[in-house]
Design a protein around this nucleic acid. Structure first.
Lengths: 329, 329
DNA sequence: CTGAAAGCGCTTACAG
DNA sequence: CTGAAAGCGCTTACAG
């Protein structure tokens, strides 16, 4: 662990002023020989500019944060990849931070100046969260449902996604469909429940078989799946996301229930584990990749001074796999 | 997006000097009335201290970074949780960044002063990486195998872990065992291959059925699994980690091969998906949680000025599940 | 093209 | 207990 050398040290070694050293290193106006000597000195010393000092001065850090509720959910890893490819082109570093469902403090902390902006996944978009986003000292793009004007957001249409799924299941012959959802005081929980109910009504089937898990995770979904199956085996089960669907699949296997033979099963998010599971899992692609890309571009333009764009949405797409198709089983 | 108010603004509003405002806010010496007025002014203005300014001055940022090669691998999410619980107690924020297998630049960039220290997962611990760690301006703890003195590291014993796995498979009756491993110029690739070969020799069985995938991911493991199975069905397959084992399981299913009936299958890391898969996957717990905890504590004491501890290791543990036990199949 | 100087927002001895 | 001042490391007009 070496002490980081300063610009002053580099300048001294090169025999020039600090100002000239700065210009030489940052592509400012400087003579060829100055540039050469400063570069040499910097290399010799292993000089690394102190980004806090630079940031204090310039107001830019070259960093952007992604705030997510659950680092273990593959959908966020996928979004992170998409974000990274957008940001890499601009030489901006992406950092991920795990935060609560209603990340008020974390959003407020963004104003501390350590990042140039942030992309925030908020499960609970409370008024406090919206307020924090609006008063943050840096641009923030919310991945989620925000109706407030002046706030940038990119949302999935999981209401429509649920519709696609229910329609598909009914087309496969299901009449009795259960839903395993997360907390309904969250945006995804509420939207997916509403979408499910609306789709069932449209199809003229009951929408009363619903289990609400404590969280959108594997662990929380397992007991919910148990509770639902204890009440009998429906024709099909839809889970609020792939992670929860996979926990349900596991519970089915434990009970000797075969998917799709004994019941159909589907999730949302279309993550990689859905593709790899046995049977592979039918899911709804909620456009994670596209949402991340749009969010990144929106954030970049906001950082460059553009005004908020408002809400943007990405359409869902049904991805049929083995878990809902009896013929290939 | 409100402009962040400064300490100067708070001080002015409270009618005190900047110095007094700073002391009042940070628990320094100040009169009760000063504290009250400054606090009030800060609240009114929604004041947030600029951490870059504070960091420049104090040399502390209150942030620590975790550098990982693959944000999508659940084992890193698990480590992140363990780290977070350790760091939360100290009011330190944890940020995750995805970096290359040999994160030389990323480690060097740590010296920019944006974090107080870092925990780095390096797949390839090259001399360059070690040099970057040693010369970084902040303490760095490497999660991986580093023999160099003066570098803090916490390693898993995957060599022994492979031994446990091979012994178990042989005990289950396997004689012909295949290995699907990642690049062997990485620490985990090399160690797991070596551990596999050593264990096979000890058991007196062949160790020549090896497929090397391009990466330690689902996607890279799938073609490797295909290649191996194209050559015939061994008694058992071991994959270098759970993600790769799950891809192999999927490939088996696609070919109509039943695990554990037609062949046994096991992975390493003991991640949540291993527990949830159907069949559930036998794996080796390489102590991700403990390693993260040890790394966090080591980093914290380094940040507090302690000298490097050197290498620490965590013992592996076999976790037997359905994928290697025919009786319960 | 180059150097002296100011200033980014904050903390911390140093005198009062 | 409080304020004026220096300084953390850097960038950027401003004169030369």
């Amino acid at each position: 662990m070496a002490e980081g050398s300063t610009l002053a040290a580099v300048a001294a070694r090169a025999g020039v002023s600090i100002a000239s050293a700065s210009r030489a290193l940052n592509g400012g106006i400087a003579s060829t020989s100055t540039i050469a000597r400063v570069q040499q000195a910097a290399d010799d010393l292993g000089y690394r500019p102190n980004l806090m000092a630079r940031g204090l001065q310039s107001g830019r850090t070259g960093q952007v944060a992604m705030l997510v509720p659950d680092a273990a959910n593959p959908v966020y890893a996928r979004m992170m990849s998409a974000l990274q490819s957008e940001l890499d082109a601009h030489g901006i570093r992406l950092l991920m931070q795990q935060v609560p469902a209603a990340p008020v403090d974390a959003v407020a902390a963004l104003s501390a100046g350590l990042v140039d902006g942030a992309i925030v996944v908020a499960l609970r978009v409370t008024d406090d969260v919206v307020a924090a986003v609006r008063t943050a000292a840096v641009p923030v793009v919310v991945l989620g449902l925000v109706e407030t004007a002046g706030v940038d957001s990119v949302r999935a249409d999981s209401h429509a996604g649920m519709g696609l799924l229910v329609d598909h299941l009914v087309a496969q012959g299901a009449r009795r469909i259960g839903l395993i959802v997360g907390p309904v005081d969250t945006t995804p929980g509420r939207t997916r429940l509403d979408g499910f109910v609306a789709a069932c009504e449209r199809q003229g089937i009951a929408a009363d078989l619903v289990e609400v898990a404590d969280d959108f995770t594997h662990a929380a979904a397992r007991p919910a799946a148990r509770a639902m199956l204890d009440g009998g085996v429906p024709d099909a089960i839809v889970a609020a996301n792939d992670a929860m669907a996979l926990a349900t699949l596991r519970e089915c296997a434990t009970r000797g229930l075969r998917v799709p033979h004994d019941l159909l099963l589907a999730g949302l998010d279309d993550t990689e584990p859905a593709e790899l599971s046995v049977p592979s899992l039918t899911s709804i692609d909620l456009g994670a990749h596209d949402r991340a890309r749009i969010a990144a571009r929106t954030l970049l333009s906001r950082i460059d001074g553009a005004a908020p764009t408002g809400q943007q949405a990405v359409a869902p797409r049904l991805v049929v796999r083995e878990s809902t198709t009896k013929e290939t089983a």
